[in-house]
Design a protein around this nucleic acid. Structure first.
Lengths: 209, 209
DNA sequence: TCTCGTTTTAAACGGGCGTTTTAAACAATC
DNA sequence: GATTGTTTAAAACGCCCGTTTAAAACGAGA
């Protein structure tokens, strides 16, 4: 039991610190200090820093992709020709429920920050790891999007969806700073739900236009 | 003259490596080796690594913001009530032409990666530096965007603009990963300019809807 | 209670980092 | 050609990094 505790505490601390600072700027000593475990515990339980990074991603991406896969299957069974809205709805629901139940009580902003890191700081080993393990779910998701808009070229679909991902990741991962800025700028507070309620029509307009 | 050569070669190498790897992952030894100058040259000519990072940004942001300011003035003189499209057009043209003439023959992708880094990897000193030196041009640009849609509340404007910034920043900072993915996904290569040409109507549609 | 595999601990290792130092090379002025 | 200020060069500094080692502590089964 104390082993699981150590492993979990390392993963929790690493996750927080990676999301906050990135990989290179986070040392194993920072992680083990925050986790209140011995420095050598990381290499003992995970092997290396690279393996720890992969483990952090695996812990939240594996249940997330399982859930998404399942939900996509449910959607496809109930609906032979799902619209773009249907597909995005499955994604949004999986993210919101997945983050709070399957993946634990982790903050949505941390989840988003990690997703962002996967794009902006993933080099070599991590990119290979993600591709090997989650490419299949990703491809399936993209396929439904394509099917929903067969008149658009694959390239157009690809870039539109990634522009949208960018808006989400950027907004949600810096939601606290942005809410402060908004407060200072407009004098009104924006709740997270308010922001979501503006983000979704924004994305819909941009994707479908 | 050999001094200017040394300084320029350091800036060139640092720019390339920062864009490729980020700040923390790029050492002064990598930079000076590529630039074929002595290791101590960085500290002699720039003072510290932090100062070098700022110098790299200053070299491309200063002429870029000057150009953008000038173009905004031209636009405002010719057009008392510029539309959102007009304003975005000025930005896009400044980026595309500015990169190739004013700023030199530098690659557009490097320019974009650096812009992305400014958001995703800027901590402390760099954020302060950018705010101090380029906040004014940024604010002016945002003001034109607001003026183009006076019927929208400040809060709506604020969030739409930052959703758009998110799409830009995310795309820019992971442009190489995304191009690889696009290539694997669709079998077609997407040039950086192609991506820009899709990004701008995407943003326009999302902002205006 | 002793044993043996697992986990934790403290200490050290080699290496790369940013930076500093000291001296040599250079260029311009008189 | 000597002098002076600037630039380059090589070497070293102390620091923090990821990783390894070797012993201690622990825990379950005989």
């Amino acid at each position: 039991m104390s082993q699981a505790d150590t492993v979990t505490r390392i993963l929790d601390s690493a996750e927080e610190l990676f999301a906050e600072k990135g990989f290179a700027e986070t040392s194993l000593r920072m992680i083990t200090t925050r986790a209140k475990v011995n420095l050598a515990a990381v290499n003992y339980h995970f092997g290396s820093k690279k393996d720890l990074i992969q483990a952090v991603f695996a812990r939240f991406l594996s249940p997330f992709c399982s859930k998404l896969d399942k939900e996509l299957t449910v959607m496809a069974a109930a609906n032979p020709e799902p619209s773009l809205h249907d597909v995005l709805d499955v994604l949004a629901r999986t993210m919101l429920t997945g983050v709070h139940s399957t993946v634990g009580t982790r903050k949505l902003s941390v989840f988003m920050r990690l997703l962002g890191l996967a794009y902006t700081q993933a080099q070599g080993h991590l990119r290979r790891f993600l591709k090997e393990n989650y490419q299949q779910t990703y491809s399936r998701f993209i396929l439904y999007l394509r099917a929903a808009h067969p008149e658009l070229s694959p390239r157009e679909i690809f870039w539109r969806i990634h522009f949208a991902i960018g808006a989400c990741v950027f907004t949600m991962s810096s939601i606290e700073v942005l809410r402060d800025m908004s407060m200072a700028d407009t004098g009104e507070d924006s709740g997270v739900e308010d922001v979501m309620n503006q983000l979704i029509p924004f994305l819909a307009a941009a994707l479908e236009r």
